[in-house]
């Protein structure tokens, strides 16, 4: 890892990676397969919508988010049930509507609702955590070409952090894969620092 070469642009900023634009989802899928087969690890595909079959094309493992959500949802249900049981039977046992204080049946609706609430929160927050979001700033977002991805552009980015990254090799591979444009993206850096480097 320590032997990893740091590439710098003429302005002195470190290279974040190389992005390549593709014309359509079909080309994007094929290019993703090529990048996957070339053995890159620090790379990603960017598209305005989830492209069908991209998980296989990228060789992505299925996310473990459902396990987390199931665990937290069940936790919520248990907490909800336990709380009600504590209140009704332990803290202040009372018989109303002729229902014994330890009747579990009447506790089910609220248990269900609390379980649902926990599930929903863990699905959304888990999605953020698994995706390392929120991250309001990113080197890629400074590229004008990259911003087109939120409209109708299809982009693959290979990061300089990858073991096999080499700017010219990556560019050649993208061009062979049918990219319509290839661009170098700089690492984020204070403009002050960049000026100081000159």
């Amino acid at each position: 890892m320590s032997s990893k070469k740091v590439y710098k642009t003429e302005s002195g900023a470190a290279v974040h990676g190389v992005i390549a634009e593709f014309a359509n989802p079909a080309d994007l899928s094929h290019a993703a397969e090529k990048v996957r087969d070339a053995g890159y690890r620090q790379w990603d595909v960017y598209s305005p919508f989830p492209v069908h079959g991209m998980e296989e094309a990228m060789g992505q493992k299925p996310t473990k988010l459902p396990i987390l959500v199931a665990c937290l949802g069940l936790t919520g249900a248990f907490v909800g049930f336990g709380f009600q049981y504590f209140v009704r039977h332990i803290e202040y046992p009372i018989i109303h509507q002729a229902k014994p204080s330890d009747a579990w049946q009447v506790l089910i609706p609220v248990t269900f609702e609390i379980g649902v609430a926990f599930t929903a929160f863990s699905a959304l927050l888990g999605m953020f955590i698994f995706n390392a979001l929120p991250r309001w700033n990113h080197p890629l977002l400074r590229s004008r070409r990259f911003l087109g991805v939120s409209d109708d552009k299809f982009i693959i980015a290979i990061e300089a952090a990858d073991e096999k990254f080499e700017p010219h090799g990556v560019r050649t591979m993208f061009e062979k894969a049918g990219a319509i444009a290839v661009e170098l993206v700089e690492e984020e850096m204070d403009t002050v620092k960049v000026r100081a480097a000159h």
Binding site: S47, F49, P50, T119, A123
Partner: peptide
């Protein structure tokens, strides 16, 4: 939240949405 339309993000996002 700094969404970048990344395919890896989309994958988790679609799962979370489905759940």
């Amino acid at each position: 939240m700094g969404w970048r339309f990344s395919a890896r993000h989309w994958h988790t996002y679609e799962k979370a949405y489905l759940m």
